[in-house]
């Protein structure tokens, strides 16, 4: 069986966390197929963290270096991957902003479809079979990939990283000639580096129950108390202009699978529930004990969020201070 190619992501010269998950997913399939895993990294200079990729499951780490790879280069990266893809049974991306842009370009070069936002991968009769949510999480689809090279993107936070103990040998690879019609000119980082709701291990989301946009400070405080937590929002408050669309969880927003999801003052419209029901643990805080959110929550507190949330923030801070 041909090996797996995992296309990794870096930002500012550091591998992104999701890159480990791509390699872990590749390792899982490679073990089922008795084959090897190559990890492909794009950069314009040294990239930090490549030495950890063997542990995640990479047999080889391929490094493609080019001046334009300081930022995302759609055409350069497409050309590089497309030049290699025929040697692989599967090319894996992350279903991130970059992966969602890049994977279909590569699939088009291979004249096939990719499968995006994959949450599980198995192998049956020598073919890759993927599981992926459709209808914004209201149904689950299984697809058998028919092309000789399957192109997939995996959903962040769904493939656990375990110590695989592979060599992770570094190799440089050439970048083919390409024409750059599309140029990423700049990455504008927000004043405070905000964690993305789609990738964070903990998401604290607020809804209409907060009553005023200013009260989102309660949510921010709680997220801060957890550490490494992103602030999410329901569609209602995004539509009302309280929060940026990038924070929206659910239909027309993001589908998230964090380890912990805390829903504050969110009643739980079906579109919201579909977007967060794959979280590992769900906590709901709402004053209406009949709110639909409690039907999916593992733990609920019925009460006034303006009393409950500050107390929770304090307790979490206390716990973390105790270590």
């Amino acid at each position: 069986m041909s090996p797996m190619l995992c296309v990794l992501e870096q930002r500012d010269g550091t591998l992104r966390k999701v890159s480990h998950e791509i390699v872990a997913a590749g390792r899982k399939v490679a073990d089922a197929m008795s084959t090897t895993v190559d990890a492909l990294v794009f950069g314009h200079d040294d990239v930090e963290g490549l030495d950890a990729l063997g542990a995640c499951g990479a047999d080889r780490v391929l490094v493609a270096t080019h001046d334009t790879f300081r930022l995302y280069s759609p055409e350069g990266q497409t050309a590089t991957i497309a030049g290699l893809a025929a040697n692989y049974s599967t090319v894996l991306f992350a279903a991130t902003a970059t992966g969602k842009d890049l994977a279909p370009r590569v699939a088009a070069r291979l004249e096939t479809s990719c499968a995006t936002e994959v949450t599980d991968i198995t192998v049956a009769e020598g073919r890759v079979v993927v599981t992926r949510p459709v209808y914004a999480g209201r149904a689950i689809q299984q697809l058998r990939m028919m092309a000789s090279t399957a192109v997939l993107s995996i959903r962040p936070n769904t493939f656990p990283v375990t110590d695989a103990g592979r060599p992770g040998t570094l190799e440089s690879i050439p970048v083919p000639e390409f024409t750059a019609n599309v140029e990423v000119v700049e990455v504008k980082a927000p004043a405070e580096a905000a964690l993305d709701v789609g990738e964070a291990a903990i998401v604290v989301s607020g809804g209409r129950g907060l009553k005023e946009p200013e009260n989102f400070s309660l949510i921010e405080d709680l997220a801060d108390a957890f550490g490494q937590a992103a602030v999410g929002a329901s569609r209602a408050v995004v539509d009302a202009g309280w929060r940026d669309h990038s924070a929206q969880v659910g239909q027309t927003g993001k589908t998230v699978s964090p380890g912990l999801y805390v829903a504050v003052g969110i009643s739980g419209a079906i579109q919201h529930l579909a977007g967060m029901r794959t979280a590992k643990v769900i906590v709901a805080i709402n004053r209406d004990k009949d709110a639909p959110i409690f039907k999916v929550a593992d733990y609920g507190i019925v009460g006034d969020l303006f009393e409950v949330v500050p107390r929770l923030t304090a307790e979490v801070r206390k716990l973390r201070a105790e270590g």
Binding site: V184, V185, V187, K188
Partner: peptide, 15 residues
């Protein structure tokens, strides 16, 4: 000139 959200930042892209 387009702006697209990438995780935690905004990418400015031109074509």
């Amino acid at each position: 000139t387009a702006e697209r959200e990438i995780e935690g930042a905004v990418e400015v892209v031109r074509c």
